[in-house]
Computed example of a mutant assay.
Amino acid sequence: MTGGDDELAAELEALLGRRHPVAAAAVVDGGGATTASIGAGLDADFEIGSISKGVTGLLYADAIERGEVTAATPLGDLLPLADAPVGGVTLGALSTHRSGLPSLPPSAQPWRRTVALWRHGTNPYGEDLGQLLDQARGARLGRPRPRYSNLGFELLGHALASAAGTTYAGLLHDRITVPLGLERCYVPAAPEALRSEALTGVNRRGRRQEPWTGEALAPAGGIRAAIGDMATLTGALLDGTAPGIAALDPVAPFSMGYRIGAAWITVETRRRTVTWHNGGTGGFRTWMGLDREAGRGVVVLSATAAAVDSHGFELLAA
């Protein structure tokens, strides 16, 4: 089964190979958006994984523009964390992965959850906001150096929602999906909230994985979307009409020669400046990249947990 543009579908199939039997792609440039899918229809929605952090980065930059928060606003001003070490961490530090927070709090027992994911494909997340805050209160802060933190972006997203007097799901809906007309972009808090077109991902051995749903996870990795919506978002990022577009601009060094904005990574490659983010869950891998100077963007979504980063970079450079 293929859908959308036949030429892009054939290119995607050749590029990804047999390891990715269910996938979709979008190419956006001056001629508009071209989308294609293999193994599923164009309406199918994928877990976009940590590209969700990029969306939260947009919401952060948008909240600054609205005057609701600043980079210096501490978490304890927005969430009931003022009595914990994490309460003093600023939103700016969270947005650039410089909070000193671990990827996950020790109280979440990440090793046990990772083993359960490997053995049984179970969702390692699933907490609600109250449970997330309990975990955050016990988190120890390390040195404020570049350190990728899922916990940090979970807290950032929920803090932004608090500043706006809503939930993260409501914030996403009101400030991203509705203004941009995204019809299949959402954050399911539980498996029963999945759309009928939601795909089930598989690991690299082809074993089905539980969906990664959960209220707490949403800002860091819980968004699902169809390829058409991702193409629309890409177009809005390229033409500057997306809310919080300043999130794309790098403000600090990260690692391996990269620079970082609000979640978004910028790298020089093949004489191009590429702004990008990837994502990975138990059964999905995703990549989204922009050549802002050339006005070209690419999204690759796969319902198999095998990397697609190199494929995304190659398609962007084509």
Score class of each variant (00 low, 15 high):
residue 2 T to L: 14
residue 2 T to K: 13
residue 3 G to Q: 10
residue 4 G to D: 07
residue 7 E to T: 15
residue 8 L to K: 01
residue 16 L to I: 03
residue 19 R to S: 15
residue 20 H to C: 10
residue 31 G to Y: 00
residue 33 A to Q: 01
residue 39 G to S: 09
residue 41 G to W: 11
residue 43 D to P: 04
residue 44 A to Y: 03
residue 45 D to V: 15
residue 46 F to G: 08
residue 47 E to H: 05
residue 58 L to F: 06
residue 60 Y to T: 09
residue 61 A to N: 08
residue 65 E to N: 11
residue 69 V to Y: 07
residue 71 A to K: 08
residue 73 T to D: 01
residue 75 L to W: 11
residue 78 L to D: 07
residue 79 L to W: 06
residue 80 P to G: 00
residue 80 P to Y: 08
residue 80 P to M: 04
residue 86 V to G: 00
residue 95 S to F: 08
residue 100 G to R: 03
residue 105 P to W: 01
residue 107 S to A: 15
residue 108 A to C: 09
residue 108 A to H: 14
residue 108 A to V: 10
residue 109 Q to H: 14
residue 109 Q to S: 14
residue 115 V to M: 15
residue 115 V to I: 15
residue 116 A to Q: 14
residue 118 W to E: 13
residue 119 R to I: 09
residue 120 H to P: 00
residue 120 H to Q: 14
residue 122 T to C: 03
residue 122 T to Q: 12
residue 125 Y to A: 10
residue 128 D to K: 07
residue 130 G to Q: 11
residue 137 R to Q: 11
residue 138 G to M: 11
residue 139 A to R: 00
residue 143 R to I: 13
residue 149 S to G: 05
residue 150 N to K: 10
residue 150 N to A: 13
residue 152 G to A: 06
residue 158 H to Y: 02
residue 160 L to H: 02
residue 163 A to I: 08
residue 163 A to N: 01
residue 164 A to R: 14
residue 166 T to Y: 11
residue 167 T to L: 06
residue 168 Y to E: 03
residue 173 H to R: 15
residue 175 R to G: 00
residue 177 T to S: 14
residue 177 T to W: 00
residue 186 Y to S: 03
residue 190 A to P: 01
residue 202 V to E: 14
residue 206 G to V: 07
residue 209 Q to V: 10
residue 211 P to Y: 04
residue 214 G to Q: 05
residue 217 L to R: 10
residue 218 A to P: 01
residue 219 P to E: 04
residue 220 A to R: 03
residue 220 A to Y: 06
residue 220 A to M: 10
residue 221 G to D: 07
residue 222 G to P: 08
residue 222 G to L: 01
residue 224 R to T: 05
residue 226 A to W: 11
residue 227 I to G: 08
residue 228 G to H: 01
residue 236 A to L: 04
residue 243 P to M: 00
residue 244 G to N: 07
residue 247 A to D: 05
residue 250 P to F: 04
residue 250 P to W: 02
residue 251 V to G: 05
residue 251 V to L: 06
residue 259 R to D: 13
residue 264 W to P: 03
residue 265 I to E: 09
residue 267 V to F: 11
residue 268 E to A: 15
residue 274 V to E: 04
residue 275 T to C: 09
residue 278 N to E: 12
residue 287 W to H: 10
residue 290 L to N: 01
residue 291 D to L: 02
residue 293 E to C: 07
residue 294 A to W: 02
residue 303 A to Y: 10
residue 304 T to W: 09
residue 306 A to G: 00
residue 308 V to G: 07
residue 310 S to T: 14
